[in-house]
Computed example of a mutant assay.
Amino acid sequence: MQLEFLGTGAGSPSKQRNVTSVALRLLEERNAIWLFDVGEATQHQILYTTIRPRKIEKIFITHLHGDHIFGLPGLLSSRSFQGGNEPLTIYGPVGIKKFVLTALQVSESRLSYPLHFVEIQQEGKIFEDQGFTVYAKKLDHKITCYGYRVVEHDHPGELLADKLRAAKVPSGPIYGQLKAGKTVELPDGRVLDGHDFIGQPQPGRVVAILGDTRATKNALWLAKDADALVHESTFGKDEAQLAHNYYHSTSKQAAEIAKKAGVKRLFLTHISARYAGKAAYQLAYQVRNIFPETRVVNDLDVFDIPFKK
């Protein structure tokens, strides 16, 4: 599991930062990519990565401001040209379906794959399968905006092969049955419970990716004990009033959320063009006394999300 930042700027692109898009790379877990927001020129940014558009399985849109969605029609069309034929699902606020379908219709674009929409009508669980659950909660922005909490399910414990060998259990199909948790009778009459030979489950990882927002208690819920929190930082730590007026957050507010929620790492994104060069990094430096594991991300940065030890 990795986070790759395709765009880290706020509002409009600059020479240093494209507008918002984050890729959650789940290639080992499900051979897929999930995107969170698709700002203008996201498909151009992808050209500088190893991401293949046909691997994009799901797209989660936080809100309908242009710097978060204007890249969608182009990306969806290019996915057809580049061999994409697997279904793709877009999650987001009411209106995202109309935006996408209108753009495709007016441009007479034809997709080579099924396109599905899940317009979020209420907060809570919006997706679940055997490997992951995704939750959405409303944030405090000028228009309807969501944050997402991605929860990886726990991995089954490893088969304790040393313990089996010590018990003189013959290798072969029996090992597979025990790993599946079955009760097995051996040729010598012993009855073994597979659960006695399986180690502790490996806890799954949690990633919280928030859209634009003022400080809000829903951010705490989304970020609770997360391994990684992606939080906007449009304003510096001493600009709380400006942030409130424009429905955004300061780096200090993001750090306070990370600390209260007990997250492992905080990634600051949605950086205003006012913070160019070294000035952008000050957004992190000035709040590390609140939350030491804070980092301002750049376009094309990639970060591993390791398992808990």
Rank of each mutant, 00 (worst) to 15 (best):
V191G: 12
V191F: 12
L192A: 09
D193N: 15
G194V: 13
G194N: 14
H195E: 14
D196N: 13
D196G: 14
F197C: 12
I198V: 14
G199C: 12
Q200S: 13
P201G: 12
Q202C: 03
Q202E: 12
G204M: 06
G204L: 10
G204F: 07
R205N: 06
R205C: 03
V206N: 09
V206I: 15
V206D: 06
V207I: 15
A208Y: 07
A208W: 04
I209M: 10
L210T: 13
G211P: 05
G211D: 05
D212F: 00
D212V: 10
D212T: 12
T213S: 15
R214S: 05
A215G: 07
T216W: 04
T216V: 10
W221V: 15
W221F: 14
L222H: 11
A223K: 03
K224V: 00
K224F: 11
D225K: 13
D227G: 01
A228E: 05
V230D: 05
V230H: 10
H231R: 00
E232C: 02
E232V: 02
S233C: 06
T234L: 06
T234C: 00
F235C: 02
K237M: 09
K237V: 01
K237N: 02
K237D: 03
K237C: 03
D238M: 02
D238I: 01
A240Y: 03
A240T: 11
Q241I: 06
Q241S: 09
Q241L: 06
Q241E: 13
L242R: 08
A243P: 01
H244V: 03
H244L: 10
Y246G: 00
H248S: 11
H248L: 10
H248D: 06
S249V: 04
S249M: 15
T250H: 03
T250R: 01
T250W: 04
S251G: 11
Q253R: 01
A254N: 01
E256F: 01
E256C: 05
K259R: 14
K259I: 04
K259L: 15
G262F: 02
K264F: 03
K264D: 15
L266T: 10
F267S: 11
F267T: 07
F267Y: 15
L268V: 09
L268Q: 08
T269V: 12
T269D: 10
H270Y: 00
I271K: 04
S272I: 02
Y275S: 08
Y275A: 02
A276H: 01
A276Q: 14
G277Y: 00
A279R: 15
A280T: 05
Y281T: 08
Y281I: 05
Q282L: 12
Q282Y: 09
Q282V: 07
Q282E: 11
A284D: 04
A284N: 09
Y285E: 13
R288I: 08
R288K: 14
N289P: 04
N289L: 05
I290N: 09
I290C: 08
I290D: 08
I290R: 01
P292N: 10
P292S: 14
E293K: 11
T294M: 04
T294K: 02
